[in-house]
């Protein structure tokens, strides 16, 4: 869902650039609390992984494809503020180096994929964790649910921006309906990939998963003796 140059007019692009810059500024402050000597290299790796993952377009039928956005994945693995910065770095490299997503549309893309998708994903993730059983096994399903919702949410906000400043005379309701319905399907792929990757990291190194901290903190330390373990 990389918006190219030309879809949105200049005022809308300037407005989203301001939103993107403000969001990244807040994220720079917030990420400080999420990053330390141990997690900073891990967060860099997550950004690289999101870039790689976005190259894999999967077919969603009728001549359409979708790819990972990675907002939920990054938010759950490294924290929401760091996720905003991770996705922004990915989008900047894509726009400048790969010509994927426009340069004047960079603010729009950071707003949609870096801020909206990450924020929605984090809110849904926290809500799902609150209702699911409080154990490590709930982290991956909650991440998958968050990933699923984040994709049509970003698509709907694009339709809103198109209504404000789309350059082509196209009915907003048609764009909204088509964007949301296709991105619900793409969201299923997002959920699957996010659930599998988060599940794998939680299984191997739960201590490295930001979204698992609240569950890990509550897990009581259990001392089991040899006899009990053998039974």
């Amino acid at each position: 869902m990389h918006v190219p140059d030309g879809f949105l007019d200049a005022p809308t692009s300037v407005a989203t650039a301001v939103v993107a810059a403000a969001g990244m500024g807040l994220a720079l402050r917030g990420a400080r609390r999420e990053l330390d000597d141990r997690t900073a290299p891990m967060a860099g790796l997550v950004a690289a992984f999101v870039f790689a993952g976005q190259m894999i377009n999967f077919p969603v039928g009728a001549g359409t494809s979708g790819h990972l956005l990675g907002g939920a994945l990054a938010a759950v693995l490294v924290g929401p503020w760091t996720a905003v910065l991770s996705i922004s770095v990915v989008l900047i490299v894509q726009a400048l180096l790969m010509a994927d997503g426009g340069i004047t549309a960079l603010g729009t893309n950071v707003t949609l994929l870096g801020i909206v998708a990450v924020a929605v994903a984090w809110v849904v993730f926290r809500a799902l964790l609150a209702v699911l059983p409080r154990r490590l096994g709930s982290v991956a399903p909650a991440a998958a649910g968050a990933a699923f919702v984040s994709v049509p949410a970003a698509a709907a906000v694009f339709a809103g921006l198109f209504a404000m400043g789309g350059t082509a005379p196209v009915e907003t309701s048609a764009v909204l309906t088509a964007m949301v319905s296709w991105h619900v399907v793409i969201g299923l792929g997002e959920a699957l990939i996010t659930g599998l990757v988060v599940g794998a990291v939680v299984a191997a190194r739960p201590d490295l998963v930001y979204g698992a901290r609240s569950v890990l903190a509550e897990r009581p330390l259990v001392i089991r003796d040899a006899q009990e373990r053998a039974s």
Binding site: L35, D36, D37, A40, G44, F51, V89, V93
Partner: peptide
Amino acid sequence: GTLVVLGGACGLFWLVRSRS
């Protein structure tokens, strides 16, 4: 592209991180 993102993100996060 992956290496550029890795370098950029690691550099940024290393600067932003809270020092021990």
